[in-house]
């Protein structure tokens, strides 16, 4: 199976995001990337949009629902949100949407900073696993993978790689 080119996806996503924000009447959104892959996607997206808005970064390690199974991520870093959350329109950006659990954790964390006016979810890839009722508003591409396949994003120069867990 061939994977899409991330640079092309970013350019399409920028167009769709602009249309989405316009449609909703949002003029001054705040951009937040989820560490680590989401931050790379967010940086590429902001560049494509020609925006020099500050980028917030979120580390959701303290909010994950698998702590009692997997424990604490050893390389947790502080979340940095250089703007208010209260009353703001947020654009939350991640690399790969699979189960939706990361997004749930991210939303729980964001709401501990304040009550945003809205949250728009942007993902480079949607793997459509659908464990939770979470769908992106803007997506680069939707893929369906076999159970033993995973996609890995590397950065900050975006590159996608297909991994086979069966090998």
């Amino acid at each position: 199976m061939s994977l899409p080119n991330p640079a092309e996806l970013i350019s399409q996503m920028a167009t769709r995001l602009k249309a989405h924000l316009e449609h909703r009447g949002i003029s001054d959104p705040r951009f937040i990337g989820i560490r680590t892959g989401g931050v790379w996607v967010a940086q590429a997206l902001l560049k494509e949009l020609g925006s020099d808005e500050p980028l917030g970064t979120l580390d959701v390690s303290f909010y994950r629902d698998d702590f009692s199974q997997n424990g604490l991520h050893p390389q947790v870093r502080p979340s940095v949100l250089p703007f208010e959350i209260e009353g703001q329109h947020l654009v939350l950006i991640d690399d790969v949407l699979m189960s939706g659990r990361t997004i749930r954790a991210a939303m729980n964390e964001l709401f501990d900073y304040g009550r945003p006016a809205s949250v728009t979810l942007v993902c480079l890839l949607d793997l459509d696993a659908g464990e939770l009722p979470i769908r992106p508003n803007v997506v680069g591409a939707t893929l369906s993978l076999a159970a033993h396949e995973r996609v890995k994003l590397s950065g900050p120069e975006l590159a996608l790689e297909l991994q086979d867990l069966a090998l």
């Binding site: 580390d59 390690s61 303290f62 909010y63 604490l72 947790v76 502080p78 979340s79 501990d112 900073y113």
Partner: peptide, 18 residues
Amino acid sequence: TADSFLEVGARAVKKVPL
């Protein structure tokens, strides 16, 4: 890890569900 928790102490809601 403590550095990350310091940031939690500066939030409006100083609590995580860990």
